[in-house]
Structures are given as C-alpha cells and as structure tokens.
Write a protein that binds this DNA or RNA. Structure first.
Lengths: 263, 263
DNA sequence: TAAAGATCTT
DNA sequence: AAGATCTTTA
C-alpha cells in the first residue's frame, strides 16, 4: 500500500512539467526513503534524476518498494486537472496495476480522483557516482534560463567557461557570435540573487543548448540553480526542491570538433 | 425602424463570442419585448436561446417585428472592432436588407459605423416548453468551465450525477478515469461562489463534453451558471445576463450504450 | 497595444 | 488538417 499526501500540490505539477519535455515514459520508484525517478531522455543523451524525500510529505506511507511505470504526458494531463492550491494524494494498492491521484480543493468543496493504468517499463537504473567537480556555479535559475534561451537564438551549442572571476557563456552561429559573462557576486540583497563560483581549477566545456533549454523547464521549482562542471564528466544542472529533494539533469559535453573535418 | 442603444457594449461582444463557436448563421428576432435569438448548432444537436429584454437597453425602438439573418462570424468580426467601453447602437430600416452597428467611444471622440448585408435563413422556431426539472445545480461558472475542460482531457463524455449532497462529474478515456465531486456549499463569503443543489430526485445523465465546452464560452457573461437536469429531457445550461436576460444552451443526454454491442 | 508567427491541441 | 492559444515582434 502506497499513500503520499502533499499539501503543496503545485510542486508535483511543476515537477512533471519540468520532466515531461525530456522524458516520455519512466518508472517512479517509491520506498520508505522517498519518491524518486531516474530516466534518460528519448535520444539517450540526457539523464534526469528526481528525489522527493518522504519527510517532505505531510503523509507518507510505503509498505514495500514499488516501481510504477507511467507515461509522463498522461500523468501531466491528470495533474493539470489539479488546482494550484489543491492538496494532492497519490495512492496505489499493492499488486494493483493502477495509480490514483486525488485532488482536494483548499476548502474541501471539490474532491477529484483520477485513476491511471500503470505500464511496464524496463529501465537500467544507473548508479551515479558522487564526483568531485572542477567548478560549481550557483546562480539565479531565471538568469540561467534567460541566458540559455537568448544564446539559442544565435547558436546551437554553448561553451561554458569558468574562472575564479566568473562564468562565461559563449556561442556562435550564422548571424554572429555572443558572449555572456556573469561575474561572481556574493554581495546581494537576497541570497538567491547571488552568483557564486566554487572552483578548483578553470574549466571550459561545450554543450547542446537544446538540452539545457529543456532543463530550464524546472526553473519554477527553485530560485537558484547549481551547475557542476568537470572535464570529461557530464554537467549536472541541479534544482533544489525546498524541504524535499531535487531534480538533477545530466548532460555529456560535446567533444570539440574541427569544423574543417566536417563533410 | 429598429434602433437599439446599449451603453455596455462589451456585453454584446461577449454574447457573440459565446455563440459563435456553436452557431454560424442565425436570425436575430426583434420585437417590442426585446432582442432574441434561437438556433441549433451546425450538427443539429445543441440549441442556443438568447434573450435581451428591451428594458435592458438605454434606448429601444422596434416599430415592427423584424427577423434579421446574420452570419455570426461576420457579426463577431464587426463587434471586435468596438472597444470594450464603447456604446453600441444597432440600427435597421424597415424593408432594408442591411443592419448597421455603430460604436461610440466613451469620450465621443471616435464614432464608427459598420454596415452588414442581411441573409435569408429559414429556421424552425421551436417552442421550448417550461419543464419541471429533477435537479437544478447552481455553481460558479468558472468552476463548471474548469471541470468541463479538465475532464475533456481525459474523456469525450461526462456523466453528471446529482444527489442532495452534491454533484459528481465523471468521465473515462484511454488513459484512465476521473471523478470530480462538488459538495453543496451555501456558506460562502460571496453568493456567487456558492454551489446550490435544488433536487426533487437524484438524476444521472451523460453528455458530450465537446458541446458543454462550447457552452462555457459564455462564462464571461455571468459569475454563476444554472444546470437543469431531468431524465430524457435536454439539459439546460443557463447564464443570466445581468438586468437583461439570459443565454440558455440545450443539449440532449446521450443514451447509455452497451459497450458490448459496439463493433 | 495589436498583429503575426509558432506551437500545441483536437 | 484546422483551430486555439501562447509567445513574439512591430
């Protein structure tokens, strides 16, 4: 028997809107620890890892580990039927091949329940080793989203270069080139407006903007984003979910190609 | 000679936006009593009845009964040229085959007139008998609209079931099932937020969501909607138009089909 | 602010 | 394929 009650239901709505563009089908794994998901995007280039710890729920009951395969578009359709102030409860009986989403309006006048068939999805659950990163950039998530969106109107890839002074986002395309430099800045009114560089050594890596732009769908979940970079390691773009956990997106850097070698 | 002056011109704009999706051509009937319209939708499944009483107009002159056939899309196009604060005057000369819409800006600086050719439309004007309904549900129009929209992302039809305690909207589709229960609630801050059930006996009927969603285009006209249900009678979805009249939509219930009988 | 384009939906 | 809505641009 599984029963999770989340008073701030909008959070679950936002989580699904964050992942939906990248992943179509995925297993939600429930254990005593919490509610988690790990999935590759459809082109097997990017990876999403979600964790919502049990302590973050108002009520959390999970008698035995459960892996529930769902089509995220369908989950999203159902969650869109929940009001932003609704309390969401997720229920599944042991051995059942369905999951139920329950939405209660704040004044309890409206109660909705949505039942959905589960699917069998075979997924290789990758162990993601904790790595030391050469550089971690923390910045306002909205600023990161704006930069990725702006640059993708110029080019397809972005070079992210970190030095002690700041982080530079560069791109080039048919119409020209663009560089956006964000200086480290810890002296701000609100901590969530800070840009903070934790750097062991300078690093410069290239990524496809298309995926970074998908990652920024998670912007509504957190005021800040942490970007962890190391040569030859996938970048980690992390959005913390207050009191509950995180969404992390992983993306391998592009190997620099010599343009003259292209056909 | 016909001349109707409506200071709150936005009202006429909203009326047309409410009907336009359902009905393409219709006769506007003008008499000393008021301005009315009755029309079936293009697939002859739903019926719209509009009444704007003469008392609601700032000036109302209708020397003889007049039936003016119009293409509602074209009327809508013209009315969209009126500002929301404009005063709208509708004019037609006896025997003329045109109608004129006049728009005056609030400060009288702008005066526009749009003339449109009338059409011949033969319509059977149905007498709609006043019926006793087994149940009448009054609820916030926005909530009804939200429910119809949400459910149509899951299924094509909705079962509306009324009991003394409340009203339940249910649907089923490929991805799952959904039930939304609204409890009767008369103790609200504002009367327009109440959900009120007037019930003689319980009733449960099935309707095509496609049409209900068209009906909810009238939501901007009224804070509340009244849904009148009886077995074997068309449902009436009524939006009152303040001080003037109403728009009523009629839709026959679906006869429950035995799924096994389907091909 | 309004029109056009793009994207998503039925 | 058409319509609706959202976003973007003038």
């Amino acid at each position: 028997m599984l029963e999770l009650r989340l008073v701030q239901g909008s959070l679950l709505k936002k989580v699904l809107e964050s992942i939906r563009e990248l992943v179509t089908d995925a297993n939600f794994d429930c254990s005593a620890t919490g509610f988690s998901l790990q999935a590759m995007d459809s082109s097997h280039v990017a990876l999403v890892a979600l964790l919502l710890r049990s302590e973050g729920f108002e009520h959390y009951r999970c008698d035995r580990n459960l892996s529930m395969g769902m089509n995220l578009n369908n989950v999203s359709k159902m969650l869109r039927c929940a009001g932003n102030d609704d309390i969401i409860t997720v229920k599944a009986d042991d051995g059942s091949d369905t999951v139920t989403f329950m939405f209660e309006s704040p004044n309890q006048d409206k109660i909705a329940d949505f039942e959905m068939k589960l699917m069998d999805i075979d997924s290789e659950h990758l162990g993601i080793p904790d790595a030391e990163y050469q550089a971690i950039v923390r910045m306002p998530s909205s600023e990161f989203a704006r930069i990725c969106k702006d640059l993708s109107s110029i080019g397809d890839t972005v070079i992210i270069s970190v030095t002690k002074e700041g982080v530079k986002f560069s791109t080039a395309g048919d119409i020209g080139t663009a560089n956006i430099v964000c200086r480290q800045n810890k002296t701000v009114d609100k901590p969530e407006e800070a840009t903070i560089i934790e750097m062991q050594e300078p690093v410069s890596l290239t990524f496809a903007l298309r995926y970074l732009n998908s990652f920024t769908k998670a912007t509504p979940l957190s005021e800040t984003v942490a970007i962890s970079l190391s040569s030859d390691l996938p970048v980690v773009v992390e959005y913390k979910i207050a009191e509950m956990g995180y969404i992390r997106f992983y993306l391998a850097p592009k190997i620099e190609e010599d343009d003259d070698m292209k056909p």
